[in-house]
């Protein structure tokens, strides 16, 4: 009678029941207990990230401040540099240290060809004085840049006779001489033709000795840069201008 209850299937179902209860317990315990844990985890994560954010925001504003400072410095630097380089460019242009181009005239001075044996051969030649006269006349006419056969006329340029050649700067030049000047073409031409010395060359001498001289307006004259050295050894500039 007692043993009647212990049916194998009943026992099996009892085991299944226990197992199911245990599984349910496992599941719910994981589900229920894990929730507050996760919440506290998330809370700490949020706190960490907020701290990180604050730190990063601090660094960000620091870096922005530094960037502002650097940008301002850079702007000042580049402003100073720009004005310096502009000034330098202007000075170099005025000193003849840069090649320049612009409207102007081209003066050609060539020795005479039809040489008469009875006449002094020097009369058929272009002399340093002729070149000097033309260059002076051009400068009087407002020439901003002058060159003779590629030799730029600067403040310290000598033009002198050296045997059968003419010395401009330290270069020996021979006939024909091409003098290029930048300025207002009409004024330059007028100045050359009105110069007493140059007028002789372009007038009577040309006719008498067959000098190959001419003057022409040119829209775009190219004048080369001074190539010599410019190192004053004795002159020292005085600040503030006059004594």
């Amino acid at each position: 009678m007692n043993n009647r209850i212990y049916r194998p299937t009943l026992v099996a179902v009892a085991v299944v029941l226990g197992f199911l209860v245990a599984v349910a317990f496992n599941t719910t315990s994981k589900f229920v207990i894990s929730r507050p844990q996760r919440v506290s985890d998330l809370v700490s994560v949020v706190r960490d990230m907020e701290q990180q954010q604050t730190a990063l925001q601090g660094r960000y504003s620091d870096l922005r401040d530094r960037m502002d400072v650097l940008e301002r410095e850079a702007a000042e630097d580049s402003g100073v540099r720009e004005s310096f380089s502009k000034e330098l460019e202007r000075v170099r242009l005025a000193a003849g240290l840069t090649a320049v181009a612009g409207p102007g005239v081209e003066v050609l001075l060539g020795d005479g060809r039809d040489v008469d044996p009875d006449v002094d051969p020097n009369d058929y030649l272009i002399h340093d004085t002729d070149i000097t006269a033309v260059v002076n006349a051009l400068i009087v006419g407002g020439a901003e840049a002058v060159e003779v056969n590629g030799e730029r006329i600067v403040a310290t340029t000598p033009i002198r006779c050296a045997g059968t050649t003419v010395l401009v700067n330290s270069a020996r030049l021979g006939s024909p001489y091409t003098i290029r000047a930048i300025g207002e073409p009409e004024r330059l031409e007028e100045a050359v033709l009105n110069d007493p010395m140059a007028a002789l060359v372009f007038g009577p001498y040309k006719a008498q000795f067959g000098l190959e001289v001419s003057i022409a307006d040119v829209d775009d004259v190219f004048v080369s840069a001074y190539r010599g050295s410019m190192r004053p050894r004795f002159a020292a500039s005085i600040k503030g201008g006059d004594r």
Partner: peptide
């Protein structure tokens, strides 16, 4: 026996 069976199932689980 039945109670033991349930206990067995719980233990297994």
């Amino acid at each position: 026996v039945l109670l033991l069976a349930i206990a067995l199932g719980v233990t297994l689980g």
